[in-house]
Amino acid sequence: MIVPAVLSFSHALVRQAVGEGGIAVDATAGNGHDTLFLAECVGSAGKVYAFDIQQEALCRTKQRLSERGIADRVSLFHAGHHEMDRYLPDETRGKLQAVMFNLGYLPHGDPAIITRPETTLPALETSTVWLAPGGVLSVVLYTGHPGGQEEAEHVLQWAQSLSPKAFQVMHYQLLNRKQAPSLVLVEKRKTAA
Rank of each mutant, 00 (worst) to 15 (best):
P89W: 04
G21I: 00
I53H: 06
H81I: 02
G135S: 04
G46S: 08
D72M: 14
A29P: 12
W130K: 08
L38P: 09
Y87R: 08
I70H: 08
R86E: 10
G30W: 03
I113T: 13
S127A: 15
A57N: 03
A79G: 10
L124K: 01
I113W: 03
G135W: 02
R73A: 03
A29S: 14
K95S: 12
A98E: 11
G22P: 09
D90C: 13
V25I: 12
I23R: 14
N31P: 12
K47C: 05
T28L: 06
W130L: 08
G19M: 05
D34H: 11
A123R: 00
L58T: 06
K95T: 09
G69V: 01
N31M: 08
I53C: 08
V25F: 15
A98G: 10
M100F: 10
R60L: 13
H81V: 04
G30A: 13
F77M: 09
A112I: 06
R86W: 07
T119H: 07
T120V: 10
D85T: 14
C41I: 00
P111F: 00
A98Y: 11
T61W: 01
T126R: 15
S127H: 09
A29G: 11
F77K: 09
A24K: 03
R116V: 05
G135L: 03
A123F: 04
L88E: 04
F101P: 07
I114E: 04
H78V: 02
Q54Y: 10
C59L: 15
E125W: 10
E67T: 12
E118L: 07
L76E: 07
I23Q: 15
I53G: 01
P107L: 12
